[in-house]
């Protein structure tokens, strides 16, 4: 009878909203509270047979895990991301982060070391000069952001798979996990098959010039088979691991595989 007061019989919608707010990322939480209850938030909760407030979210998370598996299944390690002529490069290539350029990490080349951890034979840290001496290749590929926009850029660096071989990484491990110098400690896991993809690159240059601060100095991982957020910038360490260690955006709900 109480058709209008309860979206789900016996469940207080105000409590539902409260619970859902708790699971939202900070920025959204603030925006959401400011905007009041939205259809989106309510439907997020009532979108399926809700037993408790978080079951819709649990359902979405399991589908996302299923989608990870589907994507890993259809991932063809030999399928190359389309490449473009230099004339197709997007100018200016957008700076993109969850902070302003002024807040981007300002890494000192002299002090920076790439730390190597986990299932590798040689755990020595690498200076930038040492890395710059490795053979490099250039790719002109499309960077596709999770938001939907895309831009074509030119990246130069060492194929990650060559580096993994060089350091004696156990390539049967599941992930290479990157940590970055961004504030709030950006990190992101990369599944091993994508890490071994021929176009996955430790990038040191953009458009032929040393990677500028805006694009991730001193090192970015360019993965043209993944959405942009799985292309970490300002990388400070990589760990070869069998554990899923989560990632900055992955933990907030972006699909973890996010492969293209």
């Amino acid at each position: 009878m109480a058709k209008r007061s309860f979206l789900i019989p016996g469940v207080d919608k105000r409590l539902l909203i409260k619970d859902s707010i708790k699971t939202m990322p900070d920025v959204t939480r603030r925006r959401f509270i400011a905007g009041g209850a939205s259809l989106g938030a309510l439907t997020l909760l009532t979108g399926c047979d809700v037993v408790d407030s978080s079951s819709a979210e649990e359902m979405l998370k399991s589908v996302s895990k299923f989608n990870d598996a589907v994507q890993a299944f259809i991932f063809n390690p030999d399928a190359l991301a389309p490449t473009f002529p230099e004339s197709a490069i997007t100018k200016p290539f957008p700076f993109n982060a969850y902070y302003d350029l002024d807040d981007a990490p300002d890494v000192s080349a002299a002090d920076w070391r790439l730390e190597v951890r986990g299932l590798v034979d040689n755990k020595k840290s690498w200076t930038l000069d040492e890395l710059h001496k490795l053979p490099q290749v250039t790719q002109v590929t499309r960077h596709i952001c999770v938001e939907g926009w895309s831009a074509i850029g030119s990246w130069t660096g060492t194929p990650l798979r060559d580096f993994l071989k060089l350091i004696g990484a156990d390539t049967r491990a599941k992930y290479v996990w990157f940590q970055c110098a961004d504030k709030e400690g950006y990190n992101s896991p990369l599944d091993m098959r994508s890490a071994l993809h021929p176009q996955t690159q430790m990038t040191f240059k953009y458009a032929g010039e040393i990677l500028p601060r805006a694009y991730g100095f001193p090192m970015k991982i360019r993965v043209p088979t993944k959405l942009g957020f799985k292309n970490p910038k300002y990388v400070v360490s990589m760990e070869v691991t069998n554990d899923y260690k989560g990632g900055y955006w992955e933990d907030q709900g972006y699909n973890s595989f996010s492969g293209s």
Partner: peptide, 22 residues
């Protein structure tokens, strides 16, 4: 308008989109 969107934020919208697509 936010009132006519699903998911609360981009991540939530994507989760819904890639679930309902099936």
């Amino acid at each position: 308008p936010r009132e006519y969107t699903l998911g609360g934020w981009l991540g939530g919208g994507l989760l819904w989109h890639f679930a309902a697509m099936w």
